[in-house]
């Protein structure tokens, strides 16, 4: 799966346009977990929605196995997109409160018109067992389930149509740590078993580092750094990635915590009117003239590690680094 120069724009009235995703090109290899991190408003969910054809790119192409789904006829697209599923943060909003769990899970199969009713029921029940929801839950309604159980139901439902890729959009964000661990374990098992590819969208750096093979960092609609997951934590090459990593609180005793935290000043600028040049420059401690004049391009500085920063090679050497915020 890949995106080529994909932009997604939304009209916001009075002729103004919001660019949620701006010229994003990523490649997700089969069977890998691709993590996408960034603050709210960075465009990470919009990318996820575009990949499962819930949003049509204003520019650029999405390629599923080399094919552009939007070039397909409507009926073909309907069949094709089943392979690309999405799981959301809030299972309450994703499950119909008036449908039993079994019916919710079976619904994609009903829509697809696959097999007999008995076959579909059986497949839904099998998947319920597989995700750790016993069949006893089949006739319950969503309000009778806990958050973790509901999320399991959503996972089972996404699996019914045998997808090849699942976008997990903050799928564990609302769960308690112990339940979160269960769901992450389950997702890892299912990946092995069904050869799934995941796009894992989250703001939780601990989670994304744990499960991803590759991590991309987004800021104001653009990818600003992309690296193998085991490299990013130590070898980040973008000041924004550094700030994001250092802001994540870790449960370590006071003596063992990283000695400084970079607290970014201000907030994400409006995506309606992004800064010129490098979009991060308004909050960056290392910004110089060139950052305002010229937008940095993603450059490959190590195998599989690309970053969009004019000062990528030098900023970590800056003696001011030790001082904390700007």
């Amino acid at each position: 799966m890949s995106t080529r120069n994909v932009s997604v724009r939304f009209p916001v009235g009075r002729g103004r346009v919001l660019t949620a995703v701006d010229d994003v090109s990523i490649e997700i290899r089969r069977g890998e977990t691709f993590g996408l991190i960034g603050e709210s408003g960075s465009g990470k969910s919009t990318i996820g929605r575009a990949i499962v054809c819930l949003e049509r790119p204003s520019e650029g192409t999405i390629l599923h196995d080399g094919r552009d789904p939007h070039a397909l006829r409507a009926s073909e697209l309907r069949r094709h997109r089943r392979q690309y599923q999405i799981i959301f943060q809030d299972p309450n909003a994703a499950l119909d409160p008036r449908m039993t769990i079994l019916k919710s899970i079976r619904e994609p199969l009903d829509v697809a018109g696959e097999g007999s009713r008995a076959d579909r029921d059986q497949r839904a029940r099998d998947l319920m067992n597989r995700v750790g929801l016993g069949e006893g839950f089949a006739d319950l309604y969503p309000h009778q389930l806990s958050g973790g159980q509901k999320q399991r139901a959503c996972i089972a439902r996404a699996l019914t149509v045998r997808p090849s890729l699942i976008v997990c959009d903050e799928a564990v964000a609302a769960l308690d740590v112990s339940i979160q661990a269960d769901i992450l374990n389950l997702l890892a098992e299912l990946q092995q078993e069904f050869g799934l590819t995941y796009l894992f969208i989250t703001h939780n750096i601990g989670v994304v580092e744990h499960i991803s093979d590759t991590i991309a960092v987004m800021y104001l609609g653009q990818i600003i750094e992309i690296a193998p997951a085991d490299r990013l934590a130590e070898h980040f090459l973008h000041p924004y990635t550094q700030a994001l990593l250092s802001a994540e609180p870790v449960a370590l005793p006071s003596g063992m915590r990283p000695d400084h935290r970079i607290v970014l000043e201000g907030e994400l600028p409006s995506p309606m009117d992004p800064p010129s040049g490098c979009r991060f420059r308004t909050r960056c401690r290392f910004a110089t003239g060139i950052c305002a004049a010229e937008a940095p391009k993603l450059r490959e500085l190590a195998p599989g590690h690309r970053t969009a920063c004019h000062h990528a090679e030098t900023f970590r050497l800056d003696p001011n680094l030790k001082e904390g915020s700007q």
Partner: peptide, 29 residues
């Protein structure tokens, strides 16, 4: 953090992803 004295606190701490090897199975309660 270093020496939890109740199994519940210990379980909560151990289920944090940062304390398990990358891609390893997370201990949960």
């Amino acid at each position: 953090l270093l020496k939890p004295r109740h199994p519940y606190t210990s379980g909560l701490l151990r289920s944090l992803p940062s304390f398990t090897q990358r891609k390893g199975r997370l201990p949960s309660i």
